[in-house]
Design a protein around this nucleic acid. Structure first.
Lengths: 151, 151
DNA sequence: CGGAAAATCACCCGAAAGGAGGACGACCGG
DNA sequence: CCGGTCGTCCTCCTTTCGGGTGATTTTCCG
């Protein structure tokens, strides 16, 4: 998207041009054929549309992040700790592989389930082990569970 | 917020009222005092503002919700299922090895901790795997936890 | 559009794990 | 004494894991 200042200027210029255009037609033709109601309505419709358009765009530009804190009662359902996931820099794919490792699957089985090669699974799992600071998959499962990354 | 349909109707009514109002003033006073450029500009500004307002409002539903979890330390007490242990024919030594496997230790580390050779650990773990009906240590940990053999 | 991040795959190597089979001593109960 | 169980240890073999490096492609975002 364009930066706000330039967008405002463009917006103003477009409005001015439209006004000039309308004024031109008004003096040439419209002023006798139609009342100014049509003129006002036209302007209203066009500027409403433009306003709505930019309103939507401006709203889309700012993505609001709402941090919701949920207390997990004992033995409650598992809630993924997104914060820790980001803090450790674990990607979604790596997290997915970690989950499948925790289910007791071998690298080959994981590859078959995800339709990727065993080598890919090994790459992902290696990175997860690095990020978790462990060297074995059982430890990775333990650590992941402890950190709230897997149920 | 109002439901969309009612909002649109209100919007249309307000627009109509505004037009009527402007028209009234136009015939009374404005038409002679100012050119219709003022009229058009006024309408443009007002409807742009209204359009932007509603555009922002319609788009306000866009939220990125990040769920942050706060973990409450679990006080669940583990009770060993001795019955299942006997039912599966798991010996005390095998059960001990299973516990150490669940801690993420390698066979060599288990051997060092128990002052036995790695081969012995492998024998025990193999037997545990047989009795649990699994083929991998992560699965053994899962099964053991599920059966109440390890915390 | 261009760069960063993510995902994918490959190859090599050493270590770990697992399977199959055998062996030996201790202990315990019939 | 003898069979059964348990714990210990071994060899040989195959598979699996994990680490490292490098590369390509896809995806995302400013």
């Amino acid at each position: 998207m364009l930066p706000p200042v330039r967008r405002v200027i463009l917006y103003g210029l477009a409005g001015g041009a439209l006004l000039a255009l309308l004024k031109f037609f008004e003096y040439q033709y419209f002023v006798r054929a139609y009342t100014s109601e049509i003129y006002g309505g036209l302007v209203a419709v066009i500027f409403s549309a433009v306003g709505i358009y930019f309103g939507l765009h401006w709203a889309r530009a700012r993505h609001v992040v709402v941090i919701k804190e949920i207390r997990v009662p004992e033995g409650g359902s598992f809630v993924l700790d997104v914060e820790k996931l980001k803090a450790l820099g674990i990607t979604p794919r790596e997290h997915e592989i970690l989950g499948l490792i925790a289910e007791g699957l071998s690298n080959r089985e994981i590859g078959e389930r995800l339709f990727v090669s065993e080598n890919t699974v090994k790459t992902h799992s290696s990175r997860v082990f690095d990020k978790l600071g462990v060297g074995r998959r059982v430890q990775a499962v333990l650590k992941g569970r402890e950190l709230g990354l897997i149920p």
